[in-house]
Simulated scan of single mutants.
Amino acid sequence: MIVIYGIKQQLNPIKKELSDVIHQCMQEVLGFPEDKRAHRFIPMAKEDFYYPGGRSDAYTVIEINMMAGRKVDTQKALIKTLFQNIEEKLGILPVDIEIIIQEQQPYQWGFRGMTGDEVNDLKYKVNV
């Protein structure tokens, strides 16, 4: 699951395109299938969204929640691919993007009536 935060006036007009870019990166780096998109957008009022100095109103936070198992190099490749593709396709500078990867053990995920460590039919690999 991916949660994206930003100022609503900046985030709302680009939600579809940003979701497409994020998903393309997940497919390219992690091998996600086309139908594995779970994005949640949290557009916020400017007065509720504090961010570090030196950033513009385009400042966007992307939290990626996933089952543990990806190698450090794979996670770093995902972050760098996101920075590059978001800048290239949406014009948001890397200084205005914050990416956080949060990993949880497979047994801490619940979907389709079971926990992640019980699933044996995923269409992608976790240990990449």
Rank of each mutant, 00 (worst) to 15 (best):
E63P: 00
V128M: 08
N12D: 14
I2A: 06
H23Y: 01
L11C: 11
L18I: 06
E98Q: 08
H23P: 01
Y124E: 11
V61I: 14
L18A: 03
I101G: 01
H39I: 04
I100T: 05
E118G: 07
A58R: 15
M26H: 11
L122K: 10
E63D: 14
A58E: 14
N65Y: 11
D48M: 09
N120T: 15
I100W: 02
D48L: 06
E98T: 03
N12L: 15
R40Y: 02
I7L: 12
G54A: 09
E98A: 06
A77S: 12
D117R: 12
K123P: 08
P94W: 07
G54Q: 11
Y59Q: 07
T74N: 09
C25I: 01
V3C: 10
V61T: 08
K89M: 04
Q102D: 06
V128I: 15
A77H: 08
T74S: 10
D57E: 12
Q108E: 11
H39P: 02
K46M: 05
Q24P: 01
K89E: 03
Q102F: 00
L93T: 03
L11I: 13
I101L: 03
S56D: 12
G91E: 00
M114D: 07
Q27W: 03
Q108V: 00
F83D: 09
Q9M: 13
F83E: 07
K15M: 14
V3W: 09
Q84W: 05
N120L: 11
I97T: 01
W109V: 01
E118Y: 07
I4R: 13
I101A: 00
E28F: 04
A58Y: 11
S56A: 10
V3K: 15
Y107M: 09
L82S: 02
T60W: 08
G116I: 06
Q10A: 13
I92G: 01
D57G: 00
Q75T: 10
G53W: 09
Y50M: 10
G31S: 11
F83H: 13
V128C: 08
N120A: 10
M1T: 13
Q10E: 15
N12S: 14
I2S: 11
D121R: 10
Q24V: 03
F83C: 06
E103F: 01
I4D: 08
I42L: 14
D73T: 12
E28G: 04
M1Q: 13
K8E: 15
G69F: 12
F111I: 06
D57W: 02
L82E: 02
Y51C: 00
G31W: 10
V119Q: 15
E88M: 07
Q104S: 10
M44D: 08
Q84I: 02
V126K: 14
L93C: 01
T115Q: 12
L122R: 13
V128R: 11
M114F: 00
L18D: 01
M1P: 13
P33H: 03
N127A: 11
E47G: 00
K71Y: 10
Q10Y: 14
E98N: 09
S56E: 15
Y50C: 08
I99H: 06
G53H: 12
Q104C: 02
F41P: 04
I62T: 08
V61D: 04
Q24D: 11
I64N: 13
I99E: 07
